[in-house]
Computed example of a mutant assay.
Amino acid sequence: MKRCDIETPGQPRIGRTMMAHLAYQPLLPTGNKYLQQKWDKTSYDLHRGKVKSAKPTINTTPPKTYVHLAVKLKKQKLEEEWTMKIERENNMLMEKISHIMRTTGGIDNKNYYDRKSLGKEKQQLELLRITKENQMILSRLSECRSHYNLKSWNEDWLKTLKVMDSIARYPRGRTNEQKEQDNSIKKHNDRDKEQKMSADATTHSRAGDKYNDKESEENENSKETSKKGSTGTEKQQDTAAYPEPKAPEESISPDALENPGSSDSL
């Protein structure tokens, strides 16, 4: 028995034992099985060739690249022209600079023309108008008189001072006098100290002990004088605060006799 591979259309190859009574079994009834086998084989080969040579209906290939889009000759030409222009201008500048370096230069930057403004006359007229208005305002302010009378104000103030003096219980201006006295005492003490310091600077170093004794004595004396001055001021304040009682005949005024209730009202 021999072994062979029989290929049938539409079926895989199957290894079968070659037997004398077996033959090709077509799908449809035929008169000659041998011829039908050949025909089926050719049709199957033709089908496989068509399948292998079949092309897709959708075009998936990349598009065609054009040379003028990739190279861009126009852009290259513009860049070349721009570089040529820059080089030409640079060469011109180099020639000018070299000429100036070789020579003193022929540039004249002096202007021999007068500056003129189109609105100069109008500006002058406006300035004249403003100055006239300012002069008129100044004349009005200088000619106008004051509405208030200073003399009457001064007279009213003097009257109020008299009334205040008559109404006040203690004499006015006493505190200012006391402050002036204190300031004069301080100035006198400061002068004494300065004189003492100048005298001490002239004395020799050996007389240091004597100087200390004198200074202590002078300080005591200044204290005593200050105490005396303070006691004097205190006495004055006491006399100002509590004046001495007058005689009964002088204390009663004729106005009080005529109007006995006036003192009570005050």
Rank of each mutant, 00 (worst) to 15 (best):
D190F: 05
S166T: 00
N176E: 14
D182C: 06
D182S: 08
I185Q: 14
K187R: 13
K187A: 09
Q181K: 10
E180M: 11
N176C: 06
Y170R: 15
G173M: 04
D192V: 15
R191D: 15
Y170K: 14
K179R: 04
D182A: 10
Q178N: 07
Q178A: 12
I167N: 03
P171H: 02
E180W: 03
K186G: 05
L161W: 05
K179D: 11
Y170E: 06
D182K: 12
D192S: 10
N183E: 14
V163Y: 00
D165I: 00
Q181I: 12
D165P: 02
L161H: 06
K162F: 07
D165N: 12
E177M: 07
Q181F: 08
K187I: 02
D192M: 13
S166N: 10
E180D: 03
R169I: 09
R191V: 10
R191Q: 14
R191P: 00
D190N: 12
D192Y: 03
I167E: 03
T175K: 08
R174A: 12
R169V: 11
E177W: 04
R191F: 09
V163G: 00
R174Y: 10
T175N: 04
K186S: 10
D190C: 06
A168I: 03
R174V: 14
N183H: 08
M164V: 10
A168L: 05
N183W: 07
T160V: 13
K179T: 09
K179M: 08
I167T: 12
V163T: 09
E180T: 12
I185R: 13
D190P: 01
K179H: 02
T160S: 05
K193D: 06
T160W: 06
K193R: 07
D182F: 10
N176S: 08
Y170W: 13
T160L: 13
R172C: 05
